[in-house]
Amino acid sequence: MRNIIIVLIAMTVAGCRFPTDSPRVVANVDLHRYVGTWYEIARYPNRFQKGCSHVTATYRMLDDGHLEVVNRCRRDDREQAVAEITGRARAAGDSGDGKLKVTFFWPFYGHYWIIDLAEDYSWAVVGHPRRKYLWILARQPYLAGEVLEQLLRRLEGQGYDASRLIFTDQGTSSGPFDKHR
């Protein structure tokens, strides 16, 4: 009886500490095709992007096979000043899948999981294993409404709450939100 209680307690503790249903990642990501500039279409709110609009991320392949990451945004709380931070990303393993690690403050790395990706690399969705973060990115400052609706449905299917997304002001002439709806 004592062993059964110990096993039940251990299973309960393990179940509380580790997510059992991490999001699925893209099986194959060609980092050479991923390089370039991406526009943020939407994101989950987070402290490090508070007050940001006109958000972009630019990736450049480095000689060691890692990526340089340059994130830029216009800080609305600082008289339209541009904020920029440079980091590095690398594959999290040898599988070539969408699991990357990124750092902006070495030696601390965070999870960067590509959970959805257009076949032509025109848009990408980046998440986190515990669904703490989420970004929808595109090669242009907007996505067609039908594409966005499909992405939102797939995100819900992966356990993300699409209602938490905030849409990024990219300053397009007709307004970034008109093209999302």
Score class of each variant (00 low, 15 high):
residue 107 P to H: 06
residue 79 E to N: 15
residue 116 D to H: 05
residue 61 M to H: 01
residue 158 Q to R: 10
residue 113 W to N: 00
residue 31 L to W: 05
residue 1 M to P: 15
residue 107 P to L: 01
residue 56 T to H: 10
residue 105 F to N: 13
residue 170 Q to D: 03
residue 28 N to W: 13
residue 119 E to R: 12
residue 82 V to G: 11
residue 93 G to L: 01
residue 152 L to E: 07
residue 50 K to I: 04
residue 108 F to L: 09
residue 136 I to P: 00
residue 102 V to F: 04
residue 78 R to W: 14
residue 79 E to P: 09
residue 157 G to W: 10
residue 19 P to S: 09
residue 126 V to L: 01
residue 51 G to L: 08
residue 145 G to N: 14
residue 39 Y to P: 02
residue 53 S to H: 15
residue 115 I to D: 02
residue 35 V to C: 12
residue 170 Q to P: 01
residue 80 Q to W: 08
residue 164 R to P: 01
residue 103 T to E: 03
residue 85 I to T: 10
residue 174 S to P: 08
residue 127 G to F: 06
residue 180 H to W: 13
residue 152 L to A: 03
residue 120 D to G: 10
residue 2 R to V: 13
residue 167 F to E: 04
residue 9 I to T: 14
residue 54 H to M: 12
residue 11 M to Q: 12
residue 136 I to W: 05
residue 69 V to M: 05
residue 76 D to A: 07
residue 133 Y to F: 11
residue 20 T to L: 12
residue 27 A to S: 14
residue 117 L to Y: 09
residue 174 S to G: 10
residue 153 R to I: 05
residue 49 Q to P: 07
residue 48 F to H: 08
residue 87 G to V: 01
residue 44 Y to K: 06
residue 40 E to N: 11
residue 30 D to W: 07
residue 153 R to V: 13
residue 61 M to I: 08
residue 132 K to A: 04
residue 25 V to Y: 06
residue 157 G to V: 05
residue 35 V to R: 12
residue 141 P to E: 08
residue 134 L to W: 03
residue 19 P to Y: 11
residue 5 I to Q: 03
residue 98 G to E: 10
residue 48 F to I: 04
residue 62 L to P: 07
residue 54 H to R: 15
residue 106 W to S: 05
residue 123 W to F: 03
residue 119 E to W: 12
residue 77 D to I: 09
residue 69 V to Y: 09
residue 56 T to Q: 07
residue 85 I to D: 02
residue 38 W to L: 02
residue 30 D to I: 12
residue 50 K to S: 10
residue 120 D to N: 14
residue 118 A to V: 09
residue 100 L to H: 04
residue 165 L to Y: 06
residue 147 V to W: 01
residue 79 E to V: 10
residue 101 K to T: 07
residue 144 A to R: 02
residue 51 G to A: 06
residue 53 S to M: 13
residue 74 R to E: 12
residue 167 F to C: 04
residue 91 A to M: 05
residue 33 R to F: 04
residue 84 E to M: 11
residue 160 Y to R: 05
residue 14 A to C: 11
residue 149 E to M: 07
residue 37 T to A: 11
residue 98 G to W: 00
residue 171 G to L: 05
residue 140 Q to M: 13
residue 74 R to N: 06
residue 101 K to Q: 14
residue 142 Y to L: 10
residue 158 Q to C: 02
residue 14 A to W: 15
residue 20 T to A: 13
residue 61 M to G: 02
residue 107 P to D: 01
residue 29 V to Q: 01
residue 164 R to Q: 15
residue 135 W to T: 13
residue 32 H to R: 15
residue 41 I to Y: 10
residue 148 L to E: 05
residue 15 G to D: 08
residue 40 E to T: 00
residue 17 R to Y: 13
residue 80 Q to T: 08
residue 153 R to E: 14
residue 110 G to Q: 02
residue 166 I to R: 13
residue 126 V to F: 07
residue 164 R to E: 06
residue 156 E to F: 04
residue 111 H to G: 09
residue 60 R to W: 03
residue 97 D to Y: 02
residue 63 D to N: 14
residue 94 D to S: 12
residue 171 G to S: 09
residue 128 H to A: 03
residue 14 A to S: 13
residue 62 L to T: 05
residue 110 G to R: 06
residue 163 S to I: 08
residue 127 G to T: 09
residue 25 V to N: 02
residue 159 G to R: 07
residue 151 L to N: 06
residue 76 D to Y: 11
residue 174 S to C: 13
